[in-house]
């Protein structure tokens, strides 16, 4: 279900302020963040975020198209390396 319009998009205050100050200073340094649930607003465009995925920070350069999505959508939390083949499966103790 989508979020109530009354509340507006969820944008993390602190993160937003950080972006604002950077914009004022004209810098676009990568911003480290754990705020995966934060919605990307138009002000974020052109900035780079390092979005935590539980293990590492993934670089996310925000483009126009990403507005309205959440930061976490661009920092995958699972990595699928493919299924084991038979030999490897044996090695893994199967």
């Amino acid at each position: 279900m989508s979020r109530s319009l009354k509340k507006g998009p969820y944008v993390d205050e602190k993160l937003y302020r950080k972006v604002e100050t950077q914009t004022q200073q004209g810098t676009h340094k990568p911003i480290k963040t754990w705020r995966r649930a934060c919605t990307i607003v138009p002000e974020f465009v052109g900035h780079t975020f390092q979005v935590h995925n539980g293990r590492i920070f993934n670089d996310v350069f925000v483009t126009e198209d990403m507005v309205g999505h959440k930061l976490g959508e661009f920092s995958p939390t699972r990595m699928f390396r493919g299924h084991t083949n038979k030999k490897e499966g044996l090695r893994a103790g199967k």
Binding site: T63, D65, G72, F74, P76
Partner: peptide
Amino acid sequence: NRLREIRSYR
């Protein structure tokens, strides 16, 4: 295609 190009989870 848009979802693919922005490398989103979806």
